[in-house]
Design a protein around this nucleic acid. Structure first.
Length: 204
DNA sequence: AGCCAGATTTTCT
DNA sequence: GAAAATCTGGCTA
């Protein structure tokens, strides 16, 4: 027996800011909902990074390919990529159709379906279930099958919802794990939240 | 808490 | 053939 699903209002595309840097900040505190075969999983978005137009660290920098095509979809679509031989990561496309830019979702604070996430991440503490982009995708069972999905279609397999709780103070800093344009301040997180990835010194 | 190496495969050069 | 928007476990303090 599952508890009743939370009442989460789906976000519509017109609400999303049409710039990666603004969208990344705006998404902190919003909700990501995964409608899985076994049940619903959801969490508060507590950490993001923006990959802006003309950004040498972005996957779209060298143009559109089969791999990154979803980054060029109208804002609010999923771009799922496979990295380091083991992990998937989820982005939200952030520009107009034909513009390659997006927001990497780096961490969630689990809300619903914690037992399902735990099944995908055996042995992890609740605050570590979706703490980091690879862990987030693993916890929610997000694979390339979801690449290109419309995240503004509430009721689909994966969608964005409004905030269900007030957002805490916003923190910012340089992005993690990149080798180019490392000095740009395009990482956003909820200050003090235990589900934010990286060293604690960077998330307070 | 911080540093380091290994894993493992897709993608593009 | 090299690099990659990462994670884990083992080590040192």
């Amino acid at each position: 027996m599952d508890k009743a699903a939370m009442d989460i209002r789906p976000l519509s595309r017109s609400e999303l800011p049409a710039s990666a840097a603004v969208l990344a900040r705006w998404l902190i505190g919003k909700t990501l909902v995964r409608e899985h075969r076994r049940g619903r999983m959801s969490g508060r978005i507590v950490e993001t990074e923006a990959y802006v137009v003309g950004d040498a660290s972005g996957h779209a920098y060298k143009g559109k390919t089969a791999r990154n095509a979803s980054l060029f979809l109208e804002r609010g679509h999923a771009y799922v990529y496979f990295i380091y031989g083991c992990w998937f990561s989820l982005n939200v496309s952030a520009g107009r159709a034909g513009i390659g830019t997006g927001v990497l979702l780096r961490a969630l604070e689990p809300l619903e379906g914690v037992h399902l996430m735990s099944r995908h991440r055996l042995g992890a503490r609740v605050e570590d279930l979706a703490r980091g982009p690879g862990r987030l995708a693993t916890a929610l069972d997000i694979t390339r099958a979801l690449d290109g999905r419309d995240l503004c279609a509430g009721g689909g397999a994966l969608w964005l919802g409004d905030a269900v709780a007030p957002r805490g103070r916003l923190g910012t800093g340089p992005r993690i794990g990149i080798t180019r344009e490392t000095q740009r301040v395009l990482r956003f997180f909820e200050k003090g939240n235990r589900c934010v990835s990286g060293p604690r010194a960077l998330s307070g």
